[in-house]
Design a protein around this nucleic acid. Structure first.
Lengths: 260, 260
DNA sequence: CGGCTCGTCCATCAATATTGGACCGAACGT
DNA sequence: ACGTTCGGTCCAATATTGATGGACGAGCCG
């Protein structure tokens, strides 16, 4: 019955797995590290670190280049294959690409997971890049257009749960940091039909997003967005086809999802 | 002294980590599974499976949707951030995109890891898609243009090691399955300056690839490729700019890598 | 309403993760 | 050239903890 969230989670846990992720997270900070340095930054015994590194190496997820260790591309494969299985991705990828080249700005497809916005796919116009967020990026919902478009599809209780879980930290002066203001904003988005992010996450960056309704259940939520420098995304540019292009793309995505 | 490969690897291993990967690999086969079904396909006790699932869930890498479990997007994030840190990727991404839209075919960037070809980035022209290999895909070197371009940069001993490790299985009638034939082919590639894959992996699919030399060491090897249906990649089309475009793109990548 | 299945939980016990310290080769400073 | 240090690798001993059979309760089907 999807009794959500805050239950006990009574330590049914395998320590070694958590330790492994500690090591992996440690490796993420480096291009490549030696055992000793990694061990000291993680505050783990050298022997322990070493054993995990070797285990990960044998599993194929860590590569040893002459004494130094680094995360291997097997994780890229894993992530890629997970995404590949998502019907939403299959239905949307092409459309996002076209949208991006059509409007000449970055186009993104996002979903919610664990109360955060995840960048499922991002497409940059072939001319100038500008944002360059990595695939799979997790970030808070309330300061991105994608995230707000996602939230606008949720019940008030679910929004509350998200806010409880992650809070409303601020990134810029424009970030929404009050729960009430967020609810007002979401209401406005529902009426307006699209979400706007105006320098709420980063100075000079604007974005617009529209929910993608691809399922009858309210469970999986998705949204598509266009983002770019504020100066190129003024109110007039929005009317000049950007919003229209986005709307159209979302329509196509929803359709191709249905009979994919 | 990088005493390569076949050493003992004396079981410095954490079982639980391997078990975890078993569970993860099991999850990859499903969109979403229940504990019992997963346990039985993995031939693991239900309780054991359950504990791992819960652990993975707490770590954020597995998501529980109403009793069923599935791999989360956190792996996508991990893979994405690993790729993002690679200077080669930063230098090449944009160029691969442009190449793809310029020639109207799929453009790929590949590297070698663990004796296999890994798809670091793939870009499809915004019109028709055709191949759709997932990011991060691993496959054998000898039956792809990228792989052969990669191999052509290696010493004979290294090539031997790769063949020893993975063999030369065949995918189609055209696959190179003899070591001698492979060495001849690599020599031809070195002279010609580019590699050709002519239905050696899949019927009807052709590709051309050029090595990307971005480092003075011979350690990291990379290559870029164009691939598409055989009928669109005939000898004449190759001369008609495809090869030239590829060469140019590789040049630019090599340059932008240097002073990135 | 009764029987089955499934997810979750728990207590037991042997297996194994953990860790300090030894070892060894390379790098480095003098 | 030599001694010293540092980093990677290995090993043995112990307590921790991973593994697992079985119990429990809720939902579903007949």
């Amino acid at each position: 019955m999807a009794q959500d969230g805050a239950s006990g989670s009574s330590e049914h846990n395998i320590q070694a797995v958590h330790t492994m992720f500690t090591v992996v997270d440690g490796l993420r900070e480096f291009d490549s590290v030696g055992v000793s340095e990694l061990a000291s930054t993680l505050e783990l015994p050298k022997s322990t670190t070493f054993v995990y590194l070797k285990t990960l190496e044998e599993a194929g997820y860590v590569v040893n280049d002459g004494g130094e260790y680094r995360l291997g591309l097997r994780f890229l494969e894993l992530g890629g294959s997970i995404r590949q299985r998502l019907r939403l991705f299959q239905a949307a990828k092409q459309e996002i690409d076209e949208l991006s080249s059509q409007v000449g700005e970055v186009a993104n497809l996002g979903v919610m997971e664990d109360g955060q916005r995840v960048l499922l796919y991002t497409s940059q116009p072939s001319d100038g890049m500008f944002d360059n967020a990595p695939t799979g990026e997790f970030t808070n919902m309330h300061w991105t257009a994608l995230g707000k478009a996602l939230l606008s599809q949720l019940s008030d209780e679910r929004v509350d749960a998200v806010v409880d879980q992650h809070g409303l930290p601020s990134a810029t002066d424009a970030t929404i940091t009050e729960r009430d203001a967020l609810f007002d904003e979401l209401e406005a988005i529902r009426e307006r039909g699209y979400a706007i992010e105006d320098q709420e996450r980063r100075e000079g960056v604007k974005a617009v997003a529209i929910p993608v309704r691809y399922s009858d259940d309210p469970d999986p939520v998705a949204a598509a967005a266009i983002s770019g420098p504020k100066r190129r995304l003024g109110d007039d540019s929005l009317d000049d086809g950007i919003l229209e292009g986005l709307r159209e793309a979302v329509n196509i995505i929803e359709l191709s999802y249905k009979h994919y």
